[in-house]
Amino acid sequence: MSPQLPQFKDIQLWETACTHRSYFNEHPEVQEDNERLEFLGDAVLGFLVGKLLYQKYPQMREGELSRLRSRLVNNEHQLAEFALSLNLDQHLRLGKGAEKEGTRQNPDVLSDTLEAVIGAYFLDAGIEAVEQFIEPLFSAIAEQVTATSELDQNYKGQLQEWALAYCGLIPRYSIRQETGADHAKEFTVEVRIGSEVYGVGVGESKKTAEKRAAKAALEAQNAAGGKN
């Protein structure tokens, strides 16, 4: 199901959230543009995405969570994509000059407007309603980012910390399979804690395969509740 813009009880808040300063400057009857709401929405968004990632990725350390949050919240093009998926560009109120300049498709403006809508919705309906609105958007993209990027994560270090804490053992890695020609090798590595296999990874190098095996082990433990 495609994402939907929230329904506002206070229509004035919604209209202000969609009001670019160019429209405000050309319409003296309008009391405010959306820049103050953008400021508020940025703060609310940072908090809620931080909470989402904290709960979704219990194995991630502080630095990794910060990098992932930055990729999601401080990426103006990502926010602009969200805005377009919500058809927010169609609701944006622009001045005539800004309209001619193509501002309706400007990624910076779209991302700012989405933040303003989040700020306005926070004032209109509260933090829990905003959380329900943004969670599907950011949860899905977080999964994509973590699936396609290592985020500089030290998966082997994390797994060793977990294994020592809960099992009193150090993980051991071994090659299960090695295939391909010399110039295109593919390694399958398994990681054991004690006698049990906790994860398997495949990669173009032993190091990459070990890292992916550690990641698989961590994800399995996360799904199982974090403890044996």
Rank of each mutant, 00 (worst) to 15 (best):
N154D: 13
G203R: 01
R176A: 06
E35M: 08
Y166W: 13
R212T: 06
T19N: 06
Y166H: 12
R61E: 11
C167A: 10
I141N: 10
G180A: 03
I141K: 12
V44Y: 04
P6I: 01
L79M: 03
S2T: 08
R61N: 12
K207Q: 04
H27M: 15
H77D: 15
G102Q: 02
T148A: 01
V30L: 07
V49Q: 00
E178N: 15
H183W: 14
W14I: 08
A163I: 04
A216C: 04
D33E: 13
L159T: 00
G180N: 08
M60Q: 07
I11F: 15
R212C: 02
F133A: 06
M60R: 04
L65I: 05
L79V: 11
I141V: 06
N87R: 08
F82W: 14
L68H: 04
R212N: 03
A142K: 10
I193P: 00
L151G: 06
D108Y: 10
L45R: 08
Y173S: 05
A214N: 14
P136R: 06
A120G: 06
L92D: 00
F82R: 00
E219V: 04
D10Q: 02
D42R: 14
A17R: 00
D182Q: 11
Q7N: 15
T103W: 09
L88A: 01
T148D: 07
V145K: 15
K185P: 00
S22F: 12
N228E: 07
T188C: 14
V49A: 12
G201A: 02
N87K: 13
A216F: 15
M60A: 12
T146C: 10
T113N: 10
A120I: 08
E190P: 03
D42V: 05
G199H: 03
E99F: 05
R104T: 01
D124Q: 09
A220S: 12
A209R: 09
I127K: 03
L94V: 10
H183V: 12
V44Q: 01
V109Q: 03
E204Y: 09
K227F: 07
H20M: 03
L218C: 10
L37W: 01
L68Q: 03
Y57L: 12
G168V: 11
Y173H: 09
L5M: 11
R61Q: 14
E190T: 14
Y198G: 14
N34L: 05
A220I: 06
L164I: 04
N74I: 03
R172T: 10
D33F: 09
G168N: 10
Q177D: 14
A217M: 09
R36N: 04
T148C: 08
Q31H: 12
S139F: 03
A43V: 10
K206H: 05
V109E: 02
E219C: 12
K207Y: 08
H91N: 07
G203H: 02
Q90M: 07
A147Q: 05
E99K: 01
G201C: 10
L86W: 07
E210Q: 12
V109A: 03
L84Q: 15
R21W: 06
F122Y: 15
V202H: 11
N75Q: 13
E196H: 13
G199R: 00
C167H: 15
Q55A: 08
Q177P: 02
G119D: 09
G168L: 03
R192E: 15
A147N: 13
A142H: 15
Q160W: 11
T146V: 09
A83R: 00
P6E: 00
V30D: 12
E115D: 11
E178P: 06
G126V: 07
E26D: 05
